[in-house]
């Protein structure tokens, strides 16, 4: 390798004992310029990449605030496609439908996922089975949601003859949530300090007691973060629901079977193609509400819960 400094420079210094300023690395100016250039380029790239998100947030906040009204939040979409400019129609059915489906799916996914995570973190000792499970959970998280939807359609809608229903949609979404819940629980439990568990063990607690009374309590913020973020993914899903939930203009609380149910993402996907102002406004409103939900969940999960977990950790 070539030395970085000019050899003549150092020789001069030794011979004459004259001070000629600090030794400059070779090509110093060019390298400095390159450094600045690349930094500038990277910052431009970052701004370009982030600009669309800001534009999305701004555009839909602007449009959403223009079209939002109480009546649009409490009426159903029935009649929304009518050409009457004063047509009635709101999103109550879609809002409640989304909450219903996502609520049902977390009732399935959360218990399964949390206790699956308990096994990985507390019982498995990182054995072979647990690494296989982890691997498959990661693979499951990577399966495109349209495939989950189509398999849900094949199995639930056709083979089990549930038809389009909230239950079918919830089962498919719970498959989507499950791997996140498992892995988030595992990671949260593994961050619980061993000292606490060992202390309880020394006092004669059983493993079951330690997990239920101590570990899960201390890991709660992390587990909730995982659950909340997987909820925010489920709220925004469209593809799996198209094949399992259908859509309904009316509010219904029937989970099963052959009863279609409305949800917000469907309104975004289809209503803008209906050539009436009201329908297009509703698709803006649905987008706005979805972004609002995702934003709130993200802020709660990332800021609120992080603080909670810091509090818990400081009390140890």
């Amino acid at each position: 390798m070539e030395p970085d400094r000019e050899p003549t420079n150092s020789v001069q210094l030794q011979d004459s004992f004259s001070f000629e300023g600090p030794v400059r690395p070779r090509n110093y100016t060019r390298r400095k310029a390159l450094n600045l250039f690349v930094k500038g380029l990277l910052i431009v790239a970052a701004v370009l990449v982030l600009y669309p998100v800001v534009d999305i947030l701004y555009l839909f906040a602007y449009k959403g605030l223009q079209v939002i009204s109480i009546s649009r939040l409490i009426e159903t979409t029935a009649g929304a496609a009518s050409f009457n400019p004063h047509a009635a129609g709101g999103l109550a059915n879609a809002i409640l439908g989304t909450l219903f489906i996502v609520g049902l799916s977390s009732m399935i996914a959360v218990p399964l996922g949390v206790f699956g995570g308990v096994y990985l973190a507390e019982f498995s000792n990182d054995n072979r089975f647990s690494s296989i499970v982890r691997f498959f959970a990661d693979v499951l998280a990577g399966v495109p949601s349209i495939i989950l939807g189509y398999v849900g359609f094949l199995v639930l809608v056709l083979r089990f003859n549930l038809g389009y229903s909230a239950l079918g949609a919830a089962i498919v979404l719970s498959v989507l949530m499950f791997p996140y819940t498992v892995r988030a629980t595992e990671l949260a439990l593994k961050r619980v300090p061993n000292g606490i568990k060992e202390g309880a063990l020394a006092l004669g607690s059983s493993k079951t007691t330690i997990i239920n009374r101590l570990s899960l309590k201390f890991a709660l913020p992390g587990i909730l973060t995982g659950i909340l973020l997987s909820l925010s993914i489920s709220v925004g899903e469209t593809a799996p629901l198209l094949y399992t939930a259908g859509f309904s203009d009316y509010i219904n609380w029937t989970a099963c079977c052959h009863t279609q149910i409305g949800y917000l993402t469907y309104v975004v996907f289809t209503f803008y193609t209906i050539p009436t102002t009201n329908a297009i406004d509703l698709s803006y409103l649905a987008t706005f509400l979805l972004i609002l939900i995702v934003l709130v969940i993200n802020i709660v999960a990332r800021v609120g819960l992080r603080r909670l977990s810091r509090d818990l950790e400081s009390r140890i």
Binding site: V54, I56, F60, L229, V235, G236, T238, F269, L290
Partner: peptide, 18 residues
């Protein structure tokens, strides 16, 4: 980073609509 995480959270159908 927060904006970037939000970017990951925005539903796919909204990207399409945009």
């Amino acid at each position: 980073s927060f904006v970037m995480e939000l970017m990951a959270g925005i539903p796919s159908v909204i990207y399409g609509f945009w």
